[in-house]
Amino acid sequence: MKLKLKVWRQKNAKDKGQFELFDIEASEHMSFLEMMDVLNEQLIEKKKEPVAFEHDCREGICGACSMVINGQPHGPQQGTTTCQLHMRHFKDGDTIAVEPWRAKAFPIIKDLVVDRSAFDHIIQAGGFVSVNTGQAQDGNAIPIEKTQASKAFDAAACIGCGACVAACPNASAMLFTAAKIAHLGLMPQGKIEENQRVLSMVKKMDDEGFGKCSNTGACEVECPKEISIANIARMNRKYMAATLASDKK
């Protein structure tokens, strides 16, 4: 299949950046990233600079890949990361626009590569259970209801790719933050420090410069792991409760 690619090129964070057009011949069995590999091979052959994009596991779990394809993070197929998106979802002759994640809190490093350290900072603010190695009791000491563990898992499935932020017109990181708070809060081991966790993670999220949630639901639609915005509602609830319960004046 013959395609026209409109790819965002930007030298560094300060550069203004612009689209560059490429013609490319792809097979429908290729993944989107393999198509990008072919493009880069062509560029290198012409001694031009290849398009920088992030990728690693190429099986939809590491969360590295990050491309907005025709306006949609990770492209048109629901519940799928860019690396697992295959070209059979496009038609011969299509023009495909590829842009980086857009959010102030995710500054562009080069071309399609952005800096997502803000997510690490949010986790560092409290996205953990405060238990040292060696302090654990037997794994079966606390039974956990199967459905409860399963709900926690649904939230824990987040791969930290940032598609939620990219999709959100407000560049809000609520889904990412809420998913971690839900995962930990739904497990008895993480329940104990939930009040403190929700306060500090939300504060960190705001400090990192993410926008406010206006419940457009774009995050949920574009999340490759289909994490529900019910987690955001849960976080809101816990946040209000924690604020009211907090001893801080």
Binding site: V68, P169, G211, T216, G217
Partner: peptide
């Protein structure tokens, strides 16, 4: 909120999509 969200988003996408949000929610 509108202005702070606008600045949090920074540059907008060149290709807009209406596939992931309702008209109303985008234009509150």
């Amino acid at each position: 909120i509108y202005f702070s969200n606008r600045s949090a988003k920074g540059q907008r996408y060149a290709v807009k999509t209406s596939k992931n949000t309702s008209f109303a929610s985008r234009n509150m």
